[in-house]
Amino acid sequence: MNPLFKRILRKDKLSRVFVERLTEPLHINIASAFVALFGGFRRKVDFDLVVRPQYAFPILRAADLANEWGYKRLTLLEFGVAAGAGLVNICHIAAEVTKITGIEFRIVGFDTGTGMPEPIDYRDLPEAYAAGDFPMDHEKLKASLPANCELILGPITETLPAFLKTVDASSPIGFASVDVDYYSSAKDSLSVFRDTPEKYLPLVPIYLDDVGDITVNPWVGEWLAVNEFNDENKMRKIAPWNMLRARRICKNAKWIEHIHGLHVHDHAIRTPGTTERARRTADNEFIGVSFTDQAA
């Protein structure tokens, strides 16, 4: 069975289909049927017809940005691997994105390998999570991963510094999924964005999984970790992806609210006078001025 259909037939996913997909306009769902049968990968991403569109959209967008800015290879990160379905899915998506963009990927998953640690206090939402949640069969998972994917196990505070030493401008970090549930683990994960600017795209799409839980607020959980990151880093800011819902064909999807961007304001590309590009112009048809005609 197609993985997309296998996934949506799960009881918890069926309810989301009814709430999100079937409330879209009829013409969108009719068009979706044709795209599902005949569309290419990019068009399927446009219509949310891939497994985990919350990964497919930002990875494809990161690859397009990489091409625009002159990169050939990107590093993709997942914090909180658990059983590994998301990491395997990232590998499949990345392979498809490489086919249509030419961008190659290094994929890295971070996890304790033993389930969640003990919560530190109320900020870690102990009413929702506990030590030992989301265990992993790491031997079986490692055996299923492609050559461009690695699984790094252990506390993030211990494994992240060594990893960051392996990242450089030849394969900057271009996407990260943060799905570690706790405030404390999210704060540790976000420290990946504190290194020198050449290790990142100027704009890094981020999927923040746990900002949607009903008990999360600006003083607990992942939301608190993001706010503290922004307060502590003058030139690095994490913000929601501007007007993403308005730009999507299927506008009711919950995942849209989870997509954010890391803005690397001290990146060379975002520094005046460091890059060359063609002059931008705007025509004015009301007074008969066309810079396009002049250029021709």
Rank of each mutant, 00 (worst) to 15 (best):
residue 96 E to G: 03
residue 136 M to R: 01
residue 88 V to H: 11
residue 206 I to Y: 04
residue 60 L to A: 03
residue 178 V to K: 08
residue 268 A to E: 13
residue 132 G to P: 02
residue 76 L to G: 00
residue 1 M to N: 11
residue 239 A to G: 07
residue 159 T to R: 04
residue 291 F to L: 11
residue 293 D to W: 13
residue 295 A to S: 13
residue 240 P to H: 07
residue 42 R to M: 05
residue 250 C to S: 02
residue 103 I to A: 00
residue 53 P to G: 10
residue 141 L to D: 05
residue 46 D to N: 10
residue 234 K to C: 02
residue 202 P to K: 09
residue 270 R to Q: 08
residue 164 L to T: 05
residue 293 D to E: 10
residue 187 K to W: 10
residue 41 F to Q: 08
residue 226 V to E: 05
residue 109 G to E: 00
residue 31 A to D: 08
residue 67 N to L: 08
residue 71 Y to H: 14
residue 83 A to W: 15
residue 276 E to T: 13
residue 161 P to F: 13
residue 182 Y to I: 11
residue 46 D to V: 05
residue 154 G to F: 04
residue 125 L to A: 01
residue 131 A to M: 14
residue 186 A to S: 14
residue 143 A to G: 04
residue 195 D to M: 07
residue 73 R to N: 07
residue 82 A to F: 11
residue 195 D to V: 04
residue 110 F to P: 00
residue 154 G to R: 09
residue 242 N to H: 15
residue 53 P to L: 06
residue 29 N to E: 09
residue 235 M to D: 11
residue 159 T to N: 00
residue 153 L to Q: 03
residue 268 A to R: 15
residue 35 V to W: 15
residue 178 V to L: 09
residue 126 P to A: 07
residue 72 K to Q: 14
residue 61 R to T: 05
residue 68 E to K: 15
residue 226 V to A: 01
residue 245 R to P: 03
residue 286 F to M: 15
residue 258 H to R: 12
residue 99 K to N: 05
residue 275 T to G: 10
residue 224 L to I: 02
residue 15 S to T: 13
residue 213 D to C: 00
residue 35 V to A: 10
residue 12 D to M: 09
residue 267 H to G: 04
residue 236 R to T: 02
residue 184 S to A: 04
residue 167 V to K: 12
residue 78 E to L: 09
residue 204 V to N: 01
residue 270 R to M: 03
residue 261 G to L: 15
residue 96 E to S: 06
residue 269 I to P: 01
residue 130 A to V: 10
residue 92 H to W: 11
residue 136 M to W: 02
residue 29 N to C: 05
residue 250 C to I: 03
residue 273 G to S: 10
residue 186 A to L: 08
residue 82 A to S: 10
residue 264 V to W: 04
residue 287 I to L: 11
residue 231 D to M: 13
residue 232 E to L: 13
residue 81 V to N: 01
residue 290 S to H: 11
residue 243 M to I: 07
residue 192 V to A: 02
residue 105 F to S: 01
residue 126 P to Q: 04
residue 102 G to C: 05
residue 93 I to Y: 12
residue 58 P to K: 15
residue 176 A to S: 06
residue 15 S to V: 14
residue 123 R to D: 00
residue 57 F to W: 13
residue 26 L to I: 14
residue 286 F to G: 04
residue 125 L to T: 02
residue 276 E to F: 14
residue 228 E to F: 11
residue 131 A to V: 08
residue 164 L to S: 03
residue 7 R to E: 05
residue 33 A to I: 12
residue 264 V to D: 03
residue 252 N to P: 01
residue 160 L to A: 07
residue 261 G to I: 15
residue 130 A to T: 13
residue 40 G to H: 15
residue 198 E to I: 07
residue 80 G to F: 14
residue 191 S to A: 12
residue 172 P to N: 11
residue 47 F to R: 08
residue 284 N to V: 11
residue 143 A to S: 00
residue 202 P to F: 05
residue 122 Y to G: 08
residue 187 K to E: 08
residue 126 P to V: 10
residue 82 A to T: 06
residue 292 T to H: 15
residue 153 L to V: 01
residue 166 T to A: 13
residue 13 K to E: 09
residue 142 K to V: 01
residue 60 L to H: 03
